[in-house]
Computed example of a mutant assay.
Amino acid sequence: MSTRVKICGLTRVEDVEAAVDSGADAVGFVFYEPSPRSVTIEQAEALIEKVPAFVSAVGLFVNPQEKDVCEVLSRVPLDLLQFHGDETASFCAQFNRRWIKAKRVRESGDIERAFDAYKGASGLLVDAWDPDRYGGTGQSFNWDLIPENRPLPLILAGGLSSDNVSRAVEQVRPWAVDVSGGVERAKGIKDIEKISDFIKEVHRVCKTD
């Protein structure tokens, strides 16, 4: 199985182009003001113009108001919504758009409970637990907590880089991997070489399987 790659937290046109040119399957835009990778609607409108056919544009939200999601969708043609806060399944499902839910993993059983709670999602993203931050921690978690039985496509995030993503793919066998900080030279500023190396590592492992 080929593992897909999402490059998240893009803020510059050149970084979107680098992700696409390197073979990313999806690119992510953060609509959460406290994040150093946050973009405005106006910025996202310009960035998404560089996303070609067959590359998914993903909008990341953290505990948003319904009106805020609707405002983004009215101006930015997102393919997929990613909810990274404490949103309920019914909240996530109301926008007539495919969506994925992020789960910060702290202990055994967290992922299984999330699979059950968010059955209508197009995938479950698993990330490191942090009591103060909804993702973007740059930390990994214990991959042994990830169950073999996965009712939804599983997306692995948290502390990934070109140094460890091959091991992650080999051990976890995720549907996709999601990276942000691991391909940056500064928060919100991607490194073209790191993006390329990351995606090459994923493709290398998938090709040898």
Rank of each mutant, 00 (worst) to 15 (best):
V172T: 06
A186Q: 04
T88E: 14
V76G: 14
E112F: 05
I155V: 13
K101L: 15
W143L: 12
L160A: 03
G85I: 11
G158S: 06
T137P: 06
L124T: 04
A93T: 14
V205Q: 12
L81E: 03
S122G: 15
E193Y: 11
D163V: 02
V179D: 00
G159R: 02
P147A: 12
V177E: 00
Y134K: 12
K194G: 06
D116N: 12
R97S: 13
E87Q: 15
Q65D: 12
W99Q: 13
R185C: 06
D79Y: 02
R173S: 03
W143K: 07
F141Y: 07
Y134T: 11
D110F: 03
A157V: 02
H84G: 11
S161C: 14
E201T: 10
C70H: 13
L81C: 03
D144E: 15
A89Y: 14
A102D: 05
R150L: 02
A93H: 12
E201V: 11
R173V: 01
I100L: 10
G181Q: 02
P147E: 05
G182Y: 00
K200F: 05
L145Q: 01
D86M: 11
L124Q: 12
S162G: 06
W99R: 10
V69Q: 07
V177A: 00
D116G: 09
E71P: 08
G159Q: 03
D197M: 13
N96G: 15
D79W: 09
E71Q: 10
K119H: 15
S196G: 13
D116W: 15
S122V: 08
D144T: 09
D132N: 10
V165L: 05
W143Q: 08
R185H: 08
D116S: 12
S74C: 05
N149H: 12
E193S: 12
L124P: 00
I199F: 08
E170Y: 08
A128W: 02
D68V: 09
G109S: 10
G182S: 02
R185N: 08
C92M: 14
I195E: 05
R204H: 13
V69G: 08
D116R: 10
S90P: 09
G136R: 06
P151W: 00
G123W: 01
Q82N: 09
S180W: 00
E71D: 14
Q65M: 07
V202Y: 00
S166E: 11
L145D: 00
Q94M: 13
E87A: 14
E107M: 04
F95Q: 06
R185E: 07
P77F: 13
K187G: 01
I146P: 02
R173C: 07
N164S: 12
A128Y: 03
I111Q: 07
R113P: 04
G123K: 09
D163C: 02
W129D: 07
L156I: 07
I155S: 01
L160C: 04
K119S: 15
V76F: 02
L80I: 11
S140N: 07
E71H: 05
I100C: 08
E107C: 10
F198Y: 09
K101P: 14
L152S: 08
G123H: 04
A121R: 12
L80N: 07
L124E: 15
H84T: 10
L154S: 09
V72G: 05
G135Q: 07
R133D: 03
S161N: 12
E184G: 01
Q65H: 07
I189T: 04
A89E: 15
H203C: 11
E107R: 10
K187N: 06
I155K: 01
G135V: 06
A128T: 09
V72F: 10
